[in-house]
Amino acid sequence: MHTWRSVLTVATLGALLAGCGGNASTEEPAAAAGPWSFTSGNGQVVTAEKVPSRIIAHAGEAAALMSFGIKPVGIYADEPVKTDLNLKDLDLTGITILGEEWGKIDVEKAASLAPDLIVGDWWPAEKAYSGLEEGVDEKSKKLAELAPIAGVAQGESIADLAEGYEQLAKSLGAKVDDPQIAAHKQRYEKAVEAFKAATAAKPNLTAAGMSPTDEKVYVANPKYAPELLDFQRWGLKVLDPAAPDKDFPYWETLSWENADKYQPDLILWDGRAYKDTLNAEFGKKQPTWFEIKAAKAGAVTAWPAYWLHTYEDFATELEKLTTVINGADENVGN
Rank of each mutant, 00 (worst) to 15 (best):
Gly60Phe: 00
Asn331Ile: 14
Gly131Glu: 00
His309Val: 12
Gly298Lys: 10
Pro212Lys: 01
Val219Tyr: 00
Gly333Lys: 00
Thr316Tyr: 15
Lys285Tyr: 08
Gly173Met: 02
Gly131Ile: 07
Lys296His: 13
Leu16Gln: 10
Thr213Lys: 09
Glu27Met: 14
Ser53Arg: 14
Leu278Cys: 14
Ala150Ile: 01
Leu278Thr: 04
Ala174Ile: 03
Lys71His: 08
Ala150Lys: 01
Ala220Leu: 05
Glu330Met: 13
Ala328Thr: 12
Pro115Ala: 10
Ser157Asn: 06
Phe231Gly: 00
Thr199Trp: 12
Ala242Thr: 14
Leu8Phe: 08
Lys223Met: 03
Met210Asn: 07
Ala328Glu: 09
Thr253Arg: 05
Lys320Gln: 10
Asp91Cys: 12
Thr83His: 09
Glu312Thr: 09
Ala150Leu: 06
Lys237Gln: 10
Asp230Asn: 13
Thr213Gly: 11
Gly43Met: 08
Lys127Tyr: 01
Thr277Val: 15
Asp121Met: 05
Leu318Gly: 02
Asp230Leu: 02
Leu143Gly: 03
Phe314Pro: 05
Leu8Cys: 10
Asp276His: 13
Pro72Glu: 06
Tyr274Cys: 08
Ser40Asp: 01
Gly151Lys: 00
Gln180Asp: 14
Glu330Gln: 15
Ala159Gly: 13
Ala111Lys: 15
Glu145Met: 09
Gly283Glu: 07
Ala273Thr: 13
Val152Leu: 07
Gln263Arg: 10
Ser140Val: 04
Gln263Thr: 02
Ile325Asp: 03
Gly164Pro: 05
Leu98Arg: 14
Glu27Lys: 11
Lys170Val: 01
Glu108His: 08
Tyr165Val: 01
Glu49Tyr: 07
Leu254Ile: 15
Ala220Phe: 01
Leu308Cys: 06
Ser255Ile: 11
Leu92His: 10
Gly209Pro: 01
Leu205Ile: 15
Phe68His: 06
Ser171Gln: 05
Lys284Val: 15
Ala273Ser: 14
Asn326Tyr: 13
Lys82Ser: 15
Lys223Ser: 04
Asp116Ala: 09
Gln167Met: 04
Ser130Gly: 13
Ala144Ser: 13
Ile56Tyr: 02
Gly271Asp: 04
Thr288Met: 15
Ala147Arg: 04
Tyr129Trp: 06
Gly135Ile: 02
Gln154Lys: 06
Leu268Asn: 04
Lys275Phe: 11
Val46Arg: 00
Asn23Ala: 13
Asp270Ala: 11
Gly74Trp: 03
Thr310Asp: 15
Gly209Met: 01
His184Arg: 10
Lys127Pro: 00
Val81Met: 12
Met1Pro: 09
Arg5Lys: 08
Asn221Thr: 03
Leu146Asn: 04
Lys175Cys: 03
Ser171Tyr: 04
Glu145Pro: 06
Leu239Phe: 01
Leu113Lys: 12
Gln167Ala: 07
Pro222Ser: 00
Lys296Phe: 09
Thr277Glu: 12
Glu28Phe: 12
Thr93Lys: 15
Asn279Glu: 08
Ser25Thr: 11
Ala299Asp: 11
Thr277Gln: 10
Glu108Gly: 06
Lys109Tyr: 13
Lys185His: 08
Arg187Asn: 15
Ala315Ile: 00
Lys82Asn: 15
Gln263Cys: 11
Thr277Lys: 05
Gln167Cys: 04
Ile56His: 03
Thr47Ala: 09
Ser255His: 10
Gly103Asn: 05
Ala110Phe: 06
Thr253Cys: 06
Trp251Met: 04
Pro203Gln: 13
Asp91Glu: 15
